[in-house]
């Protein structure tokens, strides 16, 4: 196990806190759903709910694996339902979805290698091979993360502009919509500024690039991970679960 810089340690701590909050939030939500019925029994609790969801998903896989894959790919990954209603919104939503989901997956990968690094060090008392370290993966995933973040920036900018110029969209938006849109926009813009600072674009201010980057990363973790179960972001978890568990008899 190597030595971590203060920045890495801060991120590791905030990541752990964010994940803990995320898991706690999931528990609150699942406990809430567990108030309902499952197989004729009421109040099955959080565990009962998870069990039910897993059993429904497995049932749907067994029932028609081909259809399940189709549902997963077209219903969740490519969100065909939005495509059918509005091509414009579909492009915007997909950019936001993939722009969010890819960095999230990359984050999970990095957390995984943090754990590998830590366990490896404990077990063997030496540093692991380079490809098992989080730093290696952070570098490897930098370009794909940047691409995803630009996608996210594009998508969320369209969402913000829609709310600024369209009265109809504004009227139909409430606090939750604004929070989601603007918090996402805020974090993405922070990321862009952090990147430009790192390249020295802002003159003397660029000297603060490491601190600003750390601030951005912590904010991003809190908003993109910790707050998910407590805000409109949760639909990213709820919608796929509904689609996969209900199976949906409609055309995919």
């Amino acid at each position: 196990m190597g030595y971590y810089s203060g920045e890495e340690l801060s991120i590791a701590v905030v990541s752990s806190i964010s994940i803990a909050i995320f898991v706690f939030g999931l528990y609150i939500q699942f406990r809430k759903y567990g108030v309902g019925k499952a197989d004729g029994t009421s109040k099955v609790g959080a565990i009962g709910f998870v069990r039910l969801i897993l059993s429904l998903i497995l049932k749907n896989i067994k029932k028609d694996p081909k259809r399940f894959v189709k549902l997963f790919v077209f219903g969740i990954l490519f969100q065909r339902m939005i495509f059918r209603r509005s091509k414009f919104r579909w492009v915007m939503h997909l950019m936001i979805f993939w722009g969010w989901i890819l960095p999230f997956i990359f984050f999970i990968v990095i957390v995984f290698f943090w754990m590998v690094d830590w366990i490896y060090g404990r077990m063997y008392g030496v540093e692991p091979p380079i490809y098992l370290t989080p730093n290696f993966w952070m570098e490897e995933l930098e370009t794909p993360t940047n691409i995803a973040e630009y996608m996210l920036l594009g998508g969320i900018s369209v969402a913000v502009v829609r709310r600024l110029i369209s009265k109809a969209v504004r009227e139909m938006s409430d606090f939750h919509d604004y929070f989601l849109t603007f918090s996402l926009f805020f974090v993405v813009i922070m990321g862009l500024i952090a990147e430009l600072m790192g390249k020295g674009v802002f003159g003397e201010l660029s000297n603060y690039a490491p601190q600003f980057t750390l601030f951005y990363e912590i904010t991003a973790l809190l908003i993109f991970v910790a707050l998910v179960p407590f805000t409109k972001y949760f639909h990213m978890i709820a919608v796929p679960l509904v689609i996969l568990a209900l199976g949906d008899d409609r055309d995919v």
Partner: peptide, 22 residues
């Protein structure tokens, strides 16, 4: 809320507020 199935309670959180139904 015991009348609802667990999956129905989940559905209430899955509304994306797209306004299409309106």
């Amino acid at each position: 809320f015991e009348k609802f199935r667990c999956t129905q309670l989940l559905e209430f959180d899955a509304c994306t507020r797209c306004n299409e139904c309106l």
